[in-house]
């Protein structure tokens, strides 16, 4: 088993507040890994550290043997580490196909000369094919000419993943993918996540609701108050008294 992502003693301070404190964990290639914790545990900050948006105050984010701490989101994407967003962060004014084509940016490499002289026709066609392919993968192909804003909530989430998928990720970071979903949408999202993993993408899910991802993850890392609280397979996490206490003490929706 190889480590794809290795977070080493990452610490993030904002002024006097330590949002993430000496956090270490690692993600194995080909797995679905969960990062959970009650409100205010520092999940979102960790997410932003891994996706290159924040530069950690100290510590390293090793991805495929290379420290990517703070290099910026578009550079981590170029290395194959792609994030998704909470809610429906999409290009609402674009069609589904255009959304997916923007996702192909790294292969499309839009250039001024190509725009004017049209000598990038092959790349444009390849991007379009790739875009159609990912829409097919997420069951959105038939609606490819509709506007993203016209989609139902669950489909918007799927489109968000399709856009990320178009960028050919090795590791995909999912930001609370189950928030606000009804049971049926949740079930569908889980199927998609498995399908994604089976196609060779490693997945790191940051999630508030631990029950939603129990059946999904191979391993789970639990955070509380910015620190690592526990790590293990879902069964261990479920039975870990510290985890139960953190969730109950936090008054969160553990049930």
């Amino acid at each position: 088993m190889t480590l794809l992502l290795d977070v080493r003693a990452a610490t993030m301070r904002f002024g006097g507040l330590t949002a993430v404190d000496n956090l270490s964990f690692s993600v194995e290639a080909g797995s679905i890994h969960g990062l959970i914790g009650p409100n205010g545990a520092g999940k979102t900050t960790s997410f932003n550290l891994i996706s290159g948006f924040y530069t950690p105050t100290s510590g390293e984010i090793i991805y495929r043997g290379e420290n990517i701490a703070g290099i910026g989101t578009h550079r981590t994407a170029a290395k194959g580490l792609v994030r998704t967003f909470q809610h429906s962060t999409l290009f609402q004014e674009f069609t589904l196909l255009e959304n997916a084509v923007v996702g192909c940016h790294l292969n499309l490499r839009p250039s001024l000369a190509g725009a004017i002289f049209g000598n990038d026709r092959r790349r444009r066609r390849a991007a379009r094919e790739r875009a159609e392919e990912v829409l097919e993968f997420f069951g959105l192909a038939e609606r490819r000419h509709e506007l993203a804003s016209e989609l139902a909530h669950g489909h918007q989430r799927a489109l968000g993943m399709a856009v990320a998928m178009a960028a050919n990720p090795t590791l995909m970071l999912l930001d609370e993918p189950f928030t606000g979903m009804n049971p049926e949408e949740t079930k569908r999202m889980m199927e998609l996540t498995f399908k994604l993993r089976d196609s060779g993408v490693t997945i790191l899910i940051v999630e508030h609701d631990m029950h939603a991802i129990m059946g999904l993850c191979d391993r789970i890392t639990v955070m509380s108050f910015g620190r690592l609280l526990a790590e293990g397979v879902p069964q261990e996490i479920r039975e870990n008294p510290k985890v139960i206490e953190a969730y109950l003490g936090g008054g969160a929706h553990a049930a």
């Binding site: 989101t73 578009h74 994407a77 792609v82 290009f91 996702g103 940016h105 856009v163 178009a166 960028a167």
Partner: peptide, 8 residues
């Protein structure tokens, strides 16, 4: 932000 996330 979304554009950045796919490498723009």
């Amino acid at each position: 932000k979304l554009a950045e996330s796919v490498g723009v």
